[in-house]
Design a protein around this nucleic acid. Sequence first.
RNA 1: GGCUCCAUCGACUAAUGGAUAGGUCACCACCCUUUCACGGUGGCAGUACGGGUUCGAAUCCCGUUGGAGUCACCA
Length: 482
Amino acid sequence: MSVRVRFAPSPTGYLHVGGLRTALYNYLFAKHHNGKMILRIEDTDRSRFVENATENLISMLEWAGIIVDESPTKGGEFGPYIQSQRTNIYLEHIHILLNNGKAYYAFDTAEELDAMREKLQAGNQGDYRYDRMNMKNSITLGMDKAIELINAGIPYVIRMLVPDNEEIIFKDIIRGEVKISSNEVDDQILIKSDGFPTYHLAHLVDDHLMGITHVIRGEEWLPSTPKHCILYKAFGWEQPEFAHLPLLLNKDKTKLSKRTGSVAVEDFREKYIKDAFINFVALLGWNPTGDREIYDFQELIDLFNLEKVNKAGAVFDLQKLDWFNFQYLQKLSPEEMGKMLNEELLKIEKTGYDLNWLNKVAYALRERVHFISEIPNYAPYFFNDEIEYEQDYLEKHWNADKKNIILPLVFELEKCKDFTHDELHSTTKKYCEENGIKMKEVIHPLRLMITGKSIGAGMFETMELIGREKCISRMKKFLEKE
RNA sequence: GGCUCCAUCGACUAAUGGAUAGGUCACCACCCUUUCACGGUGGCAGUACGGGUUCGAAUCCCGUUGGAGUCACCA
């Protein structure tokens, strides 16, 4: 049987990085096995629906390189792929359960449920499950009475009937065998009073109908998996394989949330190189063994296996992601770097640069920044003619003596024919040798006069990029002032 | 609180009962050097604790401790 997996988010606004990793693992697993991945939108909670969330979800997945085989926009033979368009299917299926006695109607109000839970809490602690035999439902009232209430327009829900005293055992690919007594499982609501199914019913019916072979989802679903096992059995369906992924964590080891920083994929898209981000995320909770860190997308697909997914959660620590970004930055061509730099400059409304020149600037600085986006701030002297001088640097490398050394050099440099790195370098070297001074004695003042900053790329390379005219005028302006 | 899951350097992880517990990020030092970086070399740092099984345990078992997830007419 060929592998079919799914990613089934709720359209609640944005794609969470934890969700992206789940989607990634699903995708890697599917493609590794030449299988299919589907995208299904779980929008049965009408109150949480957010406009355009589905489009956003898809565009984030596509940015990440996750191209699903079947989806609301792409279609497929198992559609529709939006749960709110499948309500009739759920209703059909709930009747199977109603008819075989595996589900029942319940009429309790929110207040009555609250009262029940309070009572249970007062009695035996830790047990808040639906008290089936002491509430208003078709078991205590009888089916005739239940039908009567329904016909009278009384709101109702449909709950699953959990069998007593059964041991539920299921196999998880990552965690092995998990056991739990059915006495711990609640009579979960399957159909809400608004007629929509809950997640538990809807996802399970869909997974079955859509031929899903492996359910790969976050660990937060582990506690409700026994419910799903009971449901599969109630329907008489074979259950899929389960794999519950370890959670992505905040620094304090709690489930990753936006509390401590951004978790929306769109925010990462703005800052990081896609391949670096994917590489980083893929290695959070999984490792193909060995000492390697850098893997391209195809290698991830080739190597991925669920058996080597870790059990413990992984702290989502951006420090290493920055390093990955640096590594991938070095692999880009000057043209790619220049393009990114141009986009950054557009954001701060700096336009009109020669693209070829931007390529060179970005390339020259590639080893000094983790992100292309740092460049405008790291080396403003490429884009502003107004130079700000670093005070410490100025004090350290400038005084009356320096002026006497530098002045003749400026004239020599002005005479350079091509104003290229090589010529500037040899001219300066010659000058230093003739006057018995060290190169660094003059390079720092040059850097100071032209860039104002103590850090940056090689000075002659920088001068070539800034150009003769600007370099000379900056030096002269500085010399007049100081 | 009940239930379930989990536990290797600060972080990500490797080591499928057998070497001095390996690599990467971060941090520190040194080298290179034209500043800052890159790069190179080295360093710091870990099997939560206690039992057991075994010739041998990070690894298997039990217990303890700690952490997390979950317990909705949300997914």
